[in-house]
Design a protein around this nucleic acid. Sequence first.
DNA 1: CACTCCGTCACC
DNA 2: GGTGACGGAGTG
Length: 604
Amino acid sequence: MDRKRPKLLILRRDTVEGRMVARHIALEEDTALSHAANQAPDLGEGANQGDQAVAEEETRGEEALIQLESDMLPLGAEVQMHTVSSDRLVLAKGTREGEGCLAQGTGEGSGCVDGPPGAWSEPLGEDDFDNEEEMEGRDNERRPAPKRKWRWKVPVQADDDWEDCSALGPGWKRKVVFRRSTTLPAKRKWDTYYCSPCGDRMRSKVELTKYLRGGVDISRFDFQSGLFLDEKSRLKRLNHLEEVQSSSTSTSRTGTPDLDRNHTSDSLPGTPQRTPQSQASFPHITQSPTVVIHNSLPATRKASLASGSPSLRLEQISPQRLSSVASSSRDVVISHLSQSLLPLSPTKNQLLQSGLQPPSPTKNQLLQSGLQPLSPTKNQLLQSGLQPPSPTKNQLLQSGLQPPSPTKNQLLQSGLQPPSPTKNQLLQSGLQSPSPTKNQLLQSGLQPSSPTRNQLSQLRLQTPEGHRKVVVIRRPDVDLDPITSPPPQHLSLVTQWTQQWSGSNIVLNGHREMDTEKPTCTGRHGQVESVEASSHKPGSYSERIQQLKTANDKDAEKKQSPSIVFRKVGGDKWVLGGKQLEFKEEEFGNSGKTPLYTKVRFIT
DNA sequence: CACTCCGTCACC
DNA sequence: GGTGACGGAGTG
């Protein structure tokens, strides 16, 4: 702690144009972020304290604009970088969601949470802004003062918003979009659209009925959920079954709204349970609770984690399981990882992983938690967020979700709407992988992750399929809060974004994602303290951590981190260097030895 | 009151 | 004009 820390520079995509604003942030010594900085003192080749100091001097108080040429980074998302030298920045281990998003975690949160993955291009509501300052900034950017506020839309694949609705037959698509109106949250609405194989769109059951005209009996078809009643009943039974089982093994702890999003309640008749895909996939989960295998931790450790005390938790995902998950959706993987790091209640986690439906939160709870369909737009995991995210989904993220009804919101947020990468990918990917029994999961300390809402819909991202194995180390000093922590989707977005340029993995919020053939890996610096902190823990555990640390350090020594190049094009403007990377892909692309940090260079 | 449906508006 | 989203009337 006494050693000099590199100053964190945060690149935040806080405008609709995708402009990135780099700025230094003051970190409290004990904050999670500052820990991240502390634990990443060695920022790569050429990095040294002197340089860092210089950089601080040169950049202190400055706010540089960086033209982001990629839309991969969600609005509000931030990439933390350490100032290594006057012209070099290194991605910090922690990347967080925009403050706005965080703030929304306790509020409506539709901005992030709702945003469907990739749908930062939707109409905006008053609640999309955290504060007046931000509001003003955006108001000046576009459009006069229209009755409706719109968010610049980033081109995304059309399919991102549309989910297959096999219930109606091949080729049918369905989309659920939460409205981001400025009316009272309780009055929030969502629209469900269907697109026939021919491309005809229907926005009501009436229209659908007319279109089908006898071809298909949709009298028992639930327009909102996209399922036929008999299927819903079946799912309900499965969920009930799981719930009973999990209740007997889980401990009581308050769950987070975000997590709840993944589970829909059947208590509300007529309310959508899940999107077609979600519904279709969760059944699999229910039957095969585990998607991710975590290394087991001593019960006492888990307890400490739950209480929020500093502790190191290593969660290793089975390569095969990850592979199956990652192969179809990287966001899913991230989501799982991120979620697993959260101090979720065993019960909820279990429920989530098993596809069970935790007791649905009350509407007030949802509102308080800031849930809001990402969108409905982003439709959106996580939301995805995580915005059920809707962002149309999408965007679940967040936390800002606000479902008209808990059930619907949850559905949407869990991926229903997200334009997100999502939902389908999530479901298809991990949910169906062979899984250990529920007891095994519990014993291993696994924590299910939840899909995001509209985040899903709103966040919709195209996820590369490069990740197969993921190892996550939870930094003891970074205690993610289920509500305030950045939605997994955002983390994944950031990772994706950075990978697009660096081709490597980075550490997000203290979690490191790796591509890997290595069964176990860990972030290095961040783990040092963790190991020490947990030294009093069971020897086997500490030893293991130490081994991981050692191995990681060795890897770090062997490899140099890749760099993302930013070119200075103006007085204080920077442009991503035409996607130029200052590294050789072969050096760390598939070697399995992923650098801990991705460097970002600012070339003047 | 919650939900459905659809007219209408705004943007591209 | 197409699409997405909002507002509000209609319905149970």
